[in-house]
Design a binder for these strands. Structure first.
Lengths: 134, 134
DNA sequence: CGGCATCCAACCCGATACTG
DNA sequence: CAGTATCGGGTTGGATGCCG
């Protein structure tokens, strides 16, 4: 497997089934899961609190995302059968361990946001010039 | 802004425009960009090599993804105008800096893959029992 | 209040065909 | 070889309405 090409990645990344990027990360890496987890990292919150705290998420997506996070064990869900009912979401230790690994990436994103924007603008400009030349 | 709720995240995560997750990470976090970057981290590769190295990507998605990575400055593209033409992709130092931040997350994914699978199975089973009871 | 169900629009993505 | 262009299915995600 590794002799497919010279200088290429370890076998694990070829295996579509076991590749850590495809299997785990692609599901938890989405922006919603990460945003929700980040908010819960600062305290337990009700469904409606999360909904208000994340202005650009729909109720449907929030429901779906917390369900995924609960199913994967990164978030715990506590139902209080009062009237009206109350549901609280908390981050689990497992969820915290994931988030701590994401810390560096988030810092990187924050630090390099403007650099990327400029690079993009530069790229788009060059492309526009080439198009005009043809 | 921060007084919206008690114990909630720093302001930056509320700002849809400047939030590091939404702005940068949601674009680079997708599985394709990460897989491509990982392969390029082990050496420069031609388009067709990448296509063969990543069995589950289509030509269209590969083109699109390397273009995104190039536009964001994580990958460099070198065209050799021979017949037939040759295009080589390499990871840039900037791309390497991103990848190094992702290292921990990838390790986490690899380490906890089986745990997550079991947690999911457990969750699904409990849910099935509840459905049967009703 | 915290969902779930439904409908519908948008876009993601693969397959295919064609070009320099 | 390394793309671009187009079509079409499948999924994502928003809007609305109903229910415990």
């Amino acid at each position: 497997m590794a002799d497919r090409f010279p200088n290429i990645a370890p076998d694990i990344f070829y295996d579509v089934e076991f590749c850590p990027i495809r299997g785990v990360f692609s599901r938890l890496g989405g922006k919603w899961c990460l945003v929700i987890l980040t908010h819960l990292n600062f305290g337990t919150h009700r469904f409606s609190e999360l909904l208000a705290a994340i202005p650009d998420i729909s109720q449907r997506m929030l429901t779906q995302s917390v369900r995924t996070l609960e199913r994967d064990g990164l978030v715990s869900r506590k139902v209080t059968p009062s009237v009206p009912p109350r549901v609280d979401y908390s981050i689990t230790p497992f969820g915290r361990s994931f988030l701590s690994e994401m810390e560096g990436v988030l810092q990187w994103s924050l630090k390099n946001r403007s650099t990327i924007t400029k690079t993009q603008d530069n790229y788009d400009e060059k492309k526009a010039v080439k198009l005009k030349a043809s």
